[in-house]
Amino acid sequence: MHIPDGFLDMNIALVYYVLTAIVVGICIYKIKKDGINEKRVPIAGLVAAGIFAAQMLNWPIPGGTSAHFVGGAVAAIILGPFLGCIAMTSVVVIQALVFGDGGITTLGTNLFSMAIVDVFVAYYIYKFLSKKNTKIAAFVAGWIGITLGAINTGIATGLSSTFQYSINTTVPIMGIWHGALGIIEGLITVAVISYIEKNRSDILYISDEAQNKARGEKR
């Protein structure tokens, strides 16, 4: 899902840079305004480092078409949408600048897919479904988050001349393949979140948020 340089027309790349800058700006504003509990700082660092490491594990699926874990849902559920977006932004920027994974001109688009679409879609799915069942919620969040992120990649490439403006080909290829492979993302997400829920449920954003609300009401 990391688009390399050369795949996107410059106007498309620029539009995504602007959109991404706006959303990341809003995230920073929200974080500064709401504040983060001191004890969540190390967790944010560890989540980002863990996602970086997990992204290095390419799933070796025989037959050719494969993918790797992206982690937007894990970031969103543990850190919340705003800090989760910043964590994914750190990962994707480091991948591009240090490892040449994903291009420079395409960085805005790659951030939009993995740090914005994946994270926010996953967060709201989890928030909505977790009232019924947190395991199903984590699975669906991981699965749909990654699929819609991939569809955004399909849209950006499909609007570009190098892909012959074939959005009606790129979107189905990205959506169907990542929709199928996204089941693995969903399973990893539910495994990670269930483990944390069982052992350290206090670090999940939703329980942190609820605690703070309760504290605020008592005051």
């Binding site: 688009i3 494969s66 990542h178």
Partner: peptide
Amino acid sequence: YSEPLEKS
């Protein structure tokens, strides 16, 4: 190993 984007 090849990702859907490479296929596309």
